[in-house]
């Protein structure tokens, strides 16, 4: 019998004897994973909504005069000095007129007597669709307003601010639920290990007397912790998926096309499971070293 076979059969025997007390730990881990992944899913979907904002998230800088090429280059340089942007477009008076005309559709005749240069030239700045850039958009706007020749800066100020506040709140909730996951998981694993050690006290004492190595004693606990992490995270992710499908089914018709929610990709699911396993195995490893000094 080699080491692995011996510790696996030890683990199996221990689980068969203590599965009732382990159930509570399993449920707690499942719940912690569910809470954390739920908020993380909402957060990552919110980020995706930010990415889909596209044209709504542009800053329009109205200028008093049509800039020549040198001035355009200067504006471009000053904009990029503040923050990297996705693209910058210069809109001439004529282009603005054509754009406006296109928007009027059937009512274009209202423009019949109006000169084609009545609209001011502008710069359309598309910021990078990252949260950092979005968070800075207010400061960005203030900066642009101070540039020479700028009449006004326009952007979906209220919407962006609300969105930023929401994302900031989500970030805090994700961090809190992540900390909760770590705390509850390590606490429950520690508690579970303590119960198992207590129920197997005589056996562990005997193992030392017959010369069991430290790794022979602690590896089954380590494996139990890892198994709890694996089962707990799989159960938690399954529960989240069921919840996600239910939300999709109930709210699909009501939500606008902009808010199409998506589940985690396979890579993220695997990462969450692996992290849970590592967390639980690590928790049990630390606990057993502390309790048994092995």
């Amino acid at each position: 019998m080699n080491f692995l076979v011996a510790v696996f059969s030890q683990t199996w025997r221990s689980l068969a004897e203590t599965w009732r007390s382990q159930l509570l730990s399993l449920m707690t881990i499942t719940l912690s994973v569910l809470i954390f992944t739920f908020f993380y899913l909402v957060y990552s979907n919110a980020l995706q909504v930010g990415n889909r904002l596209d044209n709504d998230l542009r800053l329009i800088v109205y200028l008093d005069e049509q800039p020549n090429e040198t001035l355009q280059e200067e504006y471009r340089h000053k904009v990029e000095k503040f923050d990297k942007v996705e693209r910058i477009e210069f809109i001439s008076k004529l282009e603005a007129y054509e754009h406006f005309k296109g928007q009027l559709d059937d009512s274009q005749d209202v423009l019949k007597d109006i000169p084609k240069d009545f609209l001011p030239p502008s710069i359309e700045i598309y910021p990078r669709r990252t949260l950092d850039s979005l968070a800075k958009i207010k400061d960005f706007s203030a900066y642009l307003e101070k540039l020479p020749g700028v009449l006004k800066v326009q952007y979906g100020r209220e919407w962006v601010e609300r969105f930023n506040a929401f994302v900031r709140l989500l970030r805090v909730v994700v961090l809190l639920s992540g900390s909760l996951l770590i705390l509850t998981t390590t606490f429950m694993i520690g508690h579970s290990i303590r119960l198992t050690v207590f129920s197997r006290k005589k056996e562990l004492e005997l193992l030392r007397l017959v010369g069991a190595s430290n790794s022979y004693i602690r590896t089954p606990f380590f494996l139990e912790g890892a198994l709890l992490g694996l089962l707990g995270s799989i159960a938690g992710m399954t529960a989240l998926y069921i919840l996600f499908r239910w939300i999709q089914a109930v709210f699909a018709s009501r939500a606008s096309s902009m808010f199409t929610f998506s589940f985690f990709d396979a890579q993220t699911v695997c990462l969450i499971i692996v992290l849970s396993v590592l967390l639980c195995a690590g928790g049990s490893f630390v606990s057993i070293r502390k309790i048994l000094s092995v």
């Binding site: 059969s9 030890q10 005589k202």
Partner: peptide
């Protein structure tokens, strides 16, 4: 060294909730 020493204790040190075979197997499994 303990694996090379067999000890029959006066208080037996058996695990009451394990079978006779499991108790004997203990010293060999380690």
């Amino acid at each position: 060294l303990r694996r090379r020493i067999g000890v029959a204790y006066q208080d037996f040190k058996l695990l009451p909730d394990k079978t006779v075979a499991q108790n004997i197997a203990f010293s060999m499994e380690v």
